[in-house]
């Protein structure tokens, strides 16, 4: 919640609910739910949470902070679904690149489990809001690692992705980046920066919702990649031989 700016806070809150509603409505009208089930589940969850938090904030203000952090925790895990969706939809026609991504994501997954267990063990002695912030930050950090793995693969293997998926990727990436910066600042400086952090976070979220609404307004076609094929050894051999030829020229020039 944006404390100290009641009008702005109210505006951001309502704008968020309206945009989330619009996004869900367009998704339903354009039959995008089947295409991006995890992403729309995430938006649906956040939409319901926003309404619930609005009610709590209006009628039970003292309980707001506890409810907010508890729900934020659920959001973090739901956010992993968005990353999974980017992987699933983006690489479904590219089994080779998907295989590489799977290994990278598995590594990230084990890191997550390890980190969560470590923080939970620390928290079992004395759980506090700071502990929740730390756990959320660590989880976001892992999500960033997963998203970066996918981005590197998309760039290296020139994976063409549709406008809709590009929107999800860009929006969620921006949200994650700002979120981790905010959580880091809050963990370091505590309540001093909470108002500013909430303010930045809320406006970023509204911007991200705007990006999603625009880029997911109508369905876009996934670029065709050609049929998946076997014969990687042949491809590898051919590339090795071509690289070898170029290398022998360069070595020759060096007098090696």
């Amino acid at each position: 919640m944006v404390t100290g700016y009641p009008m702005v806070a109210l505006f951001v809150w309502l704008a968020g609910i309206v945009l989330e509603g619009a996004l869900l409505y367009r998704g339903w009208r354009a039959s995008q739910f089947c295409k991006f089930p995890l992403f729309y589940s995430y938006i649906g969850l956040v939409f319901l949470q926003s309404i619930f938090l609005y009610v709590v904030g209006t009628y039970y203000p003292p309980s707001y902070a506890d409810v907010y952090w508890a729900l934020e925790f659920v959001d973090v895990f739901a956010g992993c679904g968005v990353v999974l969706e980017i992987y699933r939809v983006g690489l479904q026609e590219f089994p080779g690149a998907a295989r590489l991504a799977r290994n990278g994501l598995l590594l990230v997954f084990f890191l997550t489990i390890g980190r969560v267990l470590l923080t939970a063990q620390e928290g079992s002695r004395n759980w506090s809001t700071m502990m929740t912030i730390q756990l959320e930050r660590d989880m976001r950090f892992v999500e960033i690692a997963a998203l970066l793995t996918l981005l590197v693969l998309f760039l290296c293997y020139a994976i063409p992705i549709s406008r809709n998926l590009r929107g999800i990727l860009f929006g969620y990436g921006l949200f994650l980046g700002i979120n981790i910066l905010n959580l880091t600042l809050m963990r370091r400086f505590g309540a001093d920066v909470q108002a500013l952090a909430s303010y930045v976070q809320s406006f970023t979220y509204i911007f991200v919702l705007g990006v999603w609404t625009v880029l997911l307004w109508s369905p876009s076609l996934q670029t065709a990649s050609g049929a998946p094929a076997d014969g990687y050894q042949g491809i590898l051999q051919q590339t090795n031989s071509r690289l070898g030829k170029t290398r022998s020229f360069v070595r020759g020039a060096l007098g090696l």
Partner: peptide
Amino acid sequence: GIMREHAQAARTARDLQISGELQL
């Protein structure tokens, strides 16, 4: 260019090997 062409061919290969990619 060789690496770009390789990436375009390998990305759809079901039997892609990580060791092969790293070696390359």
